[in-house]
């Protein structure tokens, strides 16, 4: 079993290096370490199923090891940004002021067609509209549009927009939602007080939302039926 474990560590390291060498095009939405684990897990899990004679630990041990390594790597990368950069790479600016940067594309082994395809998938059909385009470490393209091409927001119409707190679910089907309560800073007692004031029992409530300003909305089960 120890041989299998050592081989797994070697293959994990080899796959990460291979992913980094192949570049961001191969990554999809995952980081190199995540993709390495995903590729290996899917095959390792099948071994004990396909070969009944193979020891079950030869499947479980590498999976547990890969999960452990992946967790450890993510923690180490969080603490050591330099190592994280070595493993995941850096984002690369590929468009500046509506012009593709040829040297950056060549470094990523991307063609202009690949870049234009990626932009079209994001809904941008004219490269001229883009102020800055970046290929992220997971291979995704992020764009920042030129000022005249950005969608208009409320902030563009009003000089100051009053803050609007987020509405959170605090009660569903008569059950308190602790996460929602903590988000909007409500205590359970406040929920019960509001329900009492509204003359509604918790069981009658299908959904209750609240925000940090104290505003709330109650949807009764009857209202929806």
């Amino acid at each position: 079993m120890i041989v299998v474990v050592i081989r797994t560590v070697l293959m994990y390291a080899t796959l990460i290096v291979a992913m980094r060498l192949m570049g961001k095009r191969q990554l999809g939405d995952l980081q190199p370490t995540e993709l390495a684990v995903t590729i290996m897990l899917s095959d390792i899990a099948v071994i004990p199923l396909q070969e009944p004679g193979a020891p079950i630990l030869s499947g479980i041990a590498p999976i547990a090891l890969l999960v452990g390594l992946e967790l450890l790597m993510s923690c180490i990368m969080l603490k050591a940004p330099r190592l994280a950069r070595v493993i995941t790479g850096n984002p690369v600016v590929v468009i500046r002021n509506g012009r593709p940067i040829w040297s950056a594309l060549r470094r990523l082994r991307m063609t202009v067609e690949d870049l234009v395809d990626g932009l079209r998938e994001l809904g941008y059909f004219d490269i001229e509209d883009i102020e800055t385009g970046i290929v992220e470490t997971n291979g995704k393209i992020s764009v920042y549009l030129k000022a005249g091409k950005q969608p208009m927001t409320i902030g563009d119409l009003q000089p100051t927009v009053p803050p609007r707190p987020m509405s959170c679910v605090v009660l569903t089907d008569g059950e308190l939602n602790q996460f929602g309560l903590s988000l909007c800073g409500w205590e359970p007692e406040k929920v019960w007080q509001v329900l009492k004031a509204e003359n509604v029992s918790p069981k009658q409530v299908m959904l209750m939302t609240a925000d940090s300003n104290g505003a709330y909305r109650i949807i009764r089960k009857e209202e929806n039926q």
């Binding site: 079993m1 474990v5 041990a61 547990a64 452990g68 450890l72």
Partner: peptide, 23 residues
């Protein structure tokens, strides 16, 4: 931070099992 403990426990368990198995 919990993750790092889980990973350390997992790795130690595997190393322990491997050494135990060989012995």
């Amino acid at each position: 931070m919990k993750r790092i403990y889980i990973s350390i426990v997992l790795l130690l368990a595997i190393i322990g099992t491997c050494i135990g198995a060989v012995i």
